[in-house]
């Protein structure tokens, strides 16, 4: 058993060694659902579609080029496997999406700012004494989460390799699968997340189910969403008149 464990422990290291962490290809899923339009009735107000026409819903086009990996240890509604988005070095807002002409940053605001120094191996090699150095090197890290929970860096990070996370049983997990670590305390949230009620599904309601990772929305060191000024609200017409 322990051999198996250590093998698991090594697996991510091996994977990482394979280069720039290439996104794993997702298991093939049907790209579209198809159906045949039933006979058009003689009701004059129904759409006049020729009987037998096949209509297909395509998969949302953005999904084709999305970097994602199958979630481990979790399944979505109906027991179906799903994928989680991958964080990719050097990219700001990998899920940015154009809606109209506005670009909405769909990944977490915090994620993109805080992970500028990713991957950690660009500075850290091997064991790092993380306890004291946080404030010096990572001014952007505000350790609210550890302060509240009494955790130390090593509670979550693998002490001898900071870019891996450490489960309570000592198993190492890549940052791309951080939900496995989050799930250890936040079980209810993770269950909802896997079911699609907590967190966000990316691109489409149909086709490949890709959902965002926990840290895409929550800064792991400071998980609460920040308060900010909202987008403009409605303008109610004043007394005595409609719109100008």
């Amino acid at each position: 058993m322990s051999v198996f464990r250590s093998g698991l422990l090594l697996l991510p290291l091996i994977l990482w060694g394979c280069g720039d962490n290439p996104p794993e290809t997702a298991p093939a899923q049907p790209a579209e659902i198809r159906g045949v339009v039933p006979e058009a009735g003689d009701d004059p107000v129904r759409p006049d579609i020729a009987p037998g026409t096949v209509h297909a819903i395509e998969e949302a086009p953005g999904l084709a080029s999305l970097a994602a990996d199958t979630a481990r240890g979790w399944t979505g509604p109906g027991g179906h496997p799903f994928e989680v988005t991958l964080r990719t070095p050097g990219r700001r807002g990998h899920l940015s999406n154009r809606i109209g002409m506005e670009t909405f940053d769909l990944t977490a605001r915090v994620t993109n700012r805080t992970l500028t120094q990713y991957p950690c191996t660009s500075c850290h090699e091997g064991l790092v004494d993380m306890a004291d150095r946080v404030a010096d090197a990572h001014r952007n890290i505000q350790p609210v989460h550890p302060a509240r929970t009494g955790a130390t860096c090593a509670t979550c990070h693998l002490p001898d390799s900071v870019q891996y996370l450490r489960l309570t049983d000592g198993q190492a997990v890549s940052m791309d699968h951080a939900y496995q670590l989050c799930a250890e305390c936040h079980q209810g949230e993770t269950r909802s997340w896997a079911a699609g009620v907590h967190g966000k599904r990316v691109e489409g309601w149909h086709g490949r189910r890709v959902i965002m990772n926990c840290a895409d929305c929550h800064d792991p060191h400071r998980p609460a969403l920040e308060s900010r000024i909202p987008y403009p609200g409605p303008v109610l017409p004043g007394p005595g008149g409609g719109p100008p």
Binding site: G240, G241, G242, P244
Partner: peptide, 9 residues
């Protein structure tokens, strides 16, 4: 109808 006093409300 914008010249009337009517609104969406």
């Amino acid at each position: 109808l914008a010249v009337t006093g009517m609104t969406d409300h």
